[in-house]
Write a protein that binds this DNA or RNA. Structure first.
Length: 426
RNA sequence: GCGGGAUUAGUAUAGCGGUAGUACGUUUGCUUCCCAAGCAAGAGGUACGAGUUCAACUCUCGUAUCCCGCACCA
């Protein structure tokens, strides 16, 4: 994991947040290559789950929401816990989970002080006056954006049920202790959708999405034996969930930990919003059958955790001609740079000019980033591209000037192939 | 939040109460006909703030961040 963190900074994937001021706990910034990789990840996800499906509607809802939303969703109650601290061993525990007179950690009696409120939601003020009435929260999950727009989407598109509302966006949680690089941060991105259906269908669809989630992890290159399911027992489930499966990836040094989840949220959210807002959340089937409040299956993925899983999983070391080589074996669709172009020698103007020409034409034809490099020698450039996971390198040499062919070098095999410029496609 | 450890250049690391070094990377020039070659020159650092001292990167305290445990993690 340390190697990955170091490479991430050195090569411009991930920097510590607010770096020049000593950082800010639980925040990281995506550098140019990290941003490209994340963008590709999200775009693949949209292709996989949203685009091309007639029954999927993507939205992008506001991070600031009416505080009543969090009343209805239950977060106002459950994200805010009274904590007590033991005066002897300094353990912090939920006041409603412990015997007031005896600390379960150190066993001493009568050591607890006053209970203090701890709120996992980030608080802010809407408008210039900071008072009770202006208090708002940064959303602790993106799901409520879909629920509060359920009626809007139904009214505008009259979809046939089942259908889904999808969203990719940031959420914020004031974690007590952010940890493990990108794994637990206070600001993070989620890709998820709410799939609305008749309650009679939930088991069938739950199973369908469960399979599709496995296909997704396979699609982004995570091997089957590194993905594990964990059925979440009732006492550990979220307040809204009747069944939850966590999907765990085997991270280096962390071990198996969550990269996605599948929850059956029942009609908990829509029913509560109906109650709190007074709006009718019933879906009226077009065949005239009984209106009902739809139930919801929610497949959810942490963007940053999927990113970290992909990065960890692709980190490879091998040897080429006795020299150690580090490369990122990223799936082609995810690689931040699709292809790099070099002149074999940079002090031969005719090679540089020809390579420039190839570079410019590839910039037009390739869907994704094309990188130019004429630094050092050819071997260094290959290694540099290996380290950022570029699947192919194109080298222009003296033969190119004669026969319009170039060398295409493969990242994973390091093998080279001679190809006509006109036949290049990546 | 608690307890312990750490923090020296972009990265990885030496070192010392008295001018901060190495490797790789990086910049410029030369050279080089396919996997980190070579030559020359250059830029870049003691996390932040106090204190002790003639003098602090070094010792002390505080702050921040990271790592390891605990707790938390809807």
């Amino acid at each position: 994991m340390e190697d990955i963190v170091s490479l991430a900074k050195r090569r411009g994937f991930i920097y510590p947040g607010s770096d020049i001021y000593g950082g800010l706990s639980g925040t990281y910034d995506y550098g140019p290559l990290g941003t490209l990789l994340k963008r590709n990840l999200i775009s693949q996800w949209l292709k996989f789950f949203v685009d091309g499906w007639a029954d999927m509607y993507q939205i992008d809802s506001a991070i600031l929401m009416n505080p009543k939303v969090w009343q209805a969703s239950g977060h106002a109650d459950t994200f805010s816990d009274p904590l007590v601290e033991c005066g002897n061993c300094h353990s912090r525990l939920r006041a409603d989970h412990v015997d007031k007179n005896k600390c379960p950690v150190c066993g001493k009696e009568n050591t607890f002080g006053e209970a203090r409120q701890f709120n996992m939601m980030f608080k802010t003020s809407v408008g210039p006056v900071d008072d009770e009435a202006s208090t708002a929260y940064l959303r602790p999950e993106t799901a409520q954006g879909m629920f509060v727009n359920f009626k809007n989407v139904v009214d505008t598109f009259s979809p046939n049920i089942p259908f889904g509302i999808a969203q990719v966006g940031r959420a914020f949680r004031n974690e007590i202790s952010p940890r493990d690089f990108l794994f637990r941060t206070r600001e993070f991105e989620i890709m998820e959708f709410e799939y609305f259906l008749h309650p009679s269908q939930w088991e069938e669809k739950f199973d369908k999405w469960r399979k599709d989630m496995h296909s997704w992890f396979k699609h982004i290159g995570l091997p089957e034996d590194k993905i594990k399911e964990a059925e979440v027992p009732a006492e550990d489930r979220a307040h809204y969930s009747k069944r939850t499966i966590d999907f765990l990836y085997d991270f280096p040094s962390l071990g198996f930990d969550e990269v996605g989840g599948l929850a059956y949220r029942t009609d908990f959210d829509l029913k509560n919003h109906q109650e709190h807002s007074g709006k009718d959340m019933n879906y009226r089937p077009k065949d005239g059958s009984e209106p009902f409040i739809p139930h919801v299956i929610e497949p959810t993925f942490g963007v940053d955790r999927n990113f970290l899983a992909v990065l960890s999983n692709s980190y490879m070391q091998d040897e080429v001609e006795g020299e150690k080589r580090v490369y990122l074996k990223l799936p082609k669709e995810l690689a931040p740079v699709k292809v790099a172009v070099f002149p074999l020698l940079k002090n031969k103007p005719e090679l540089v000019a020809k390579a420039r020409e190839v570079y410019k034409s590839l910039q037009k034809s390739v869907d994704g980033e094309v990188m130019w490099d004429d630094n050092g020698n050819i071997g260094k450039r290959y290694r540099r591209q290996d380290e950022i996971g570029t699947p192919y390198c194109v080298t222009v040499d003296f033969d190119t000037l004669v026969d319009e062919t170039v060398t295409v070098r493969n990242r994973d095999t390091t093998e080279q192939e001679r190809k006509k410029i006109t036949e290049l496609s990546f």
